[in-house]
Design a protein around this nucleic acid. Structure first.
Length: 552
RNA sequence: GCGCGAUUAGCUCAGCUGGAUAGAGCGCUGCCCUCCGGAGGCAGAGGUCGCAGGUUCGAAUCCUGCAUCGCGCGCCA
């Protein structure tokens, strides 16, 4: 719709140049927006104002000239100049109702687009260390990462979801030592548990299980035993993590092992490439990466003077390999406490010759868990945090995911467990899901009354004349561009806001008007409208990983 | 000290990348059930967009300075 209008305006502009009512010959980008105030029509353009300076004419004069040059077209019902020089366009109702046919025809595909042009994008998210169960913060990252991936797919990108497993280095070694100590404790030894060990009760569970499957371990020499503890612990914890995520509706296309980088010598190989480009240098016995050349505060160490690589080194190699694998856009989802690492990682990307924006880092802020408005922090078995599983078990995956996506991901989030479970309109997720269930209920009701459901493309919509019906149709028409906007900005919360507004409009309409009325034509038209509502609700919820239930 | 991010209604937050009279939910006040699901709806009150300058036709949005809060600044991972 917008594109057709843009075309019309462009033609009018050209006509003005041709007949000399306008002289500059400069064609600016035509901006069209949807005004906040409905009295300002369906679309508005600021073109006349942006041209005022170069044309040396008042915006209103230019606007008048443009309007005069607009060829008659059937879909515009009103065009007028308003305010400082906006051109406001009002479309005929029928062209809005065409969207209902479009929705009915495309169904689940309504809202998909090709703006991504099949470009390959990787979204790497969660990537929690395999040293313990996922906590609530990981859950938010998971919900955001998965939704961003789904939204990008809907916008026509070729998306891969990846989990980076930090299975090399000190963290997993600490896991192994922790399990080993608990295992010895189980065998009756008096132990001094390491200060930096993992405190959670799950360590003991792992120790007990390992003793069962590998009874000989207690007799092994310590370093070998700890190694087995590490391998066992990592593999068990990864199983938990995968299971937690699966129950949260999330699966990954690829689990990428950090250790595999070392096994394949990739760290060495990628670092050699950096050296060849002159991006690294030696100083004080260490190898440094020249990240300051690309906006970082200070250069960063890749190889320590004792010869061992830093965590940064494998991270650099990992990101280099991402681009080697052919991804044009790489999106990392990190906890906001890592924001200080963004400049150095972007510096790496820039150093490789990519625009630094080819790497986008989404920072996920903290989740404040509440219970009836009071802070809730205690985790039972996991150390000092609440696990994702506890929360999903309590409030359900749908509510959990919806809440995680309600705010911009880089702002903190209050998540009230009691509110999330409540079955009333002050719980946003129920409110939205209920709108979908309500449409389904009406359709069931219609069928019980022997009313046939409308067929795609074969409905007379001329009885849809109420303002709230037009409003709904317009909002449905805006869904595709909402998805595109969410994809371009990597902001799933836009979909949430869209859903809340659509649900509100629908509930309001429902409350004022009966759908199933005496007049068959009106009934058919209204059923067609609300069917479009339920399709869009379902499509949008699907992007967020939230179910669209037919009954609640 | 340096850097990053925040600051919008009593509370929690949007604000479509510079547009017209700044919005939503919760909470508060007052209403609406002969109704397809009241698991809902309607109306009202509530604002110096942290402060001060600047850029221009036009600023919550961009620039500078200041204030307050949060986070980050290892040859840790």
């Amino acid at each position: 719709m917008k594109d057709r209008l843009r075309q019309q305006i462009g033609d009018a502009l050209q006509a003005c140049f041709d007949n000399n009512t306008l002289h500059s010959g400069v064609v600016p980008e035509v901006q069209i927006e949807v005004p906040g105030n409905p009295e300002h029509g369906d679309f508005a353009s600021n073109l006349a104002m942006t041209m005022a300076r170069i044309e040396k004419k008042s915006p209103r004069q230019i606007a008048d000239a443009l309007i005069a040059a607009l060829t008659d077209c059937d879909f515009l019902s009103k065009v007028e100049v308003a305010g400082p020089g906006f051109i406001n366009f009002t479309l005929t109702p029928t062209c809005w109702y065409k969207v209902l046919d479009d929705i009915a025809a495309r169904g689940k595909a309504y809202g998909l687009s090709r703006v991504g042009q099949g470009r390959r994008v990787q979204v790497e998210f969660v990537s929690a260390n395999p040293t313990g169960p996922l906590h609530i913060g990981h859950g938010r990252g998971a919900a955001v990462g998965d939704a961003v991936a789904a939204i990008l797919q809907a916008a026509g990108f070729d998306v891969q979801r990846e989990y980076y497993v930090n299975d090399a280095g000190n963290q997993v070694a600490t896991l192994g030592r922790s399990i080993w100590m608990r295992l010895r404790e189980q065998n009756g030894e008096t132990i001094v548990f390491p200060e930096d060990g993992y405190q959670g009760g799950y360590i003991r569970d792992l120790a007990i299980k390992l003793r069962e499957v590998d009874p000989a371990i207690a007799q092994l020499e310590e370093s070998e035993a700890v190694k087995r503890c590490t391998d066992f612990g990592v593999s068990e914890v990864l199983k938990w993590i995968a299971a937690d995520l699966k129950d949260f509706g999330i699966t990954f296309d690829n689990w990428f092992s950090e250790q595999s980088l070392y096994d394949r010598n990739m760290v060495e190989i990628e670092l050699a490439k950096l050296a060849a480009k002159g991006l690294s240098y030696e100083r004080d016995g260490a190898l440094w990466l020249r990240t300051t050349d690309y906006g970082d505060d200070k250069d960063r160490v890749l190889i320590k003077s004792d010869g061992s690589p830093t965590y940064f080194a494998s991270d650099v190699a990992y990101h280099m390999e991402k681009f080697d694998r052919g991804f044009e856009r790489v999106i990392d989802v990190w906890g906001a406490d890592h924001h200080g690492y963004v400049p150095r990682m972007k510096a790496v990307v820039a150093g490789l010759g990519h625009p630094s924006d080819d790497l986008e880092v989404l920072l996920i802020q903290m989740v404040n868990l509440l219970r009836d408005g009071q802070p809730y922090t205690m985790g039972k078995r996991s150390g000092n945090f609440v696990t994702l599983r506890e929360v999903v078990d309590e409030v359900g995956s749908d509510a959990c995911r919806f809440y995680f996506l309600m705010r911009r991901s880089d702002s903190q989030l209050d998540f009230d467990l009691e509110l999330a479970k409540r079955q009333s309109s002050d719980n946003p997720v129920y409110y939205v899901q209920y709108a979908h269930a309500r449409v389904c209920s009406i359709k069931r009701n219609a069928q019980e009354q022997g009313v046939a459901l409308p067929k795609q493309g074969a409905v007379d919509l001329s009885s849809l004349i109420l303002p709230e019906e037009l409003l709904l149709a317009k909002h449905l028409a805006r869904y595709p561009e909402t998805v595109v906007g969410a994809a371009q900005s990597c902001e799933p919360h836009r979909i949430v806001y869209y859903l809340q507004e659509l649900a509100a409009q629908f509930h309001s309409y429902y409350n004022r008007q009966r759908i199933l009325v005496e007049d068959p034509a009106t009934t058919q038209a209204r059923l067609y409208l609300i069917d479009g509502v339920s399709t869009v609700l379902a499509n949008a919820l699907n992007l967020l990983g939230v179910d669209a239930p037919e009954r609640m």
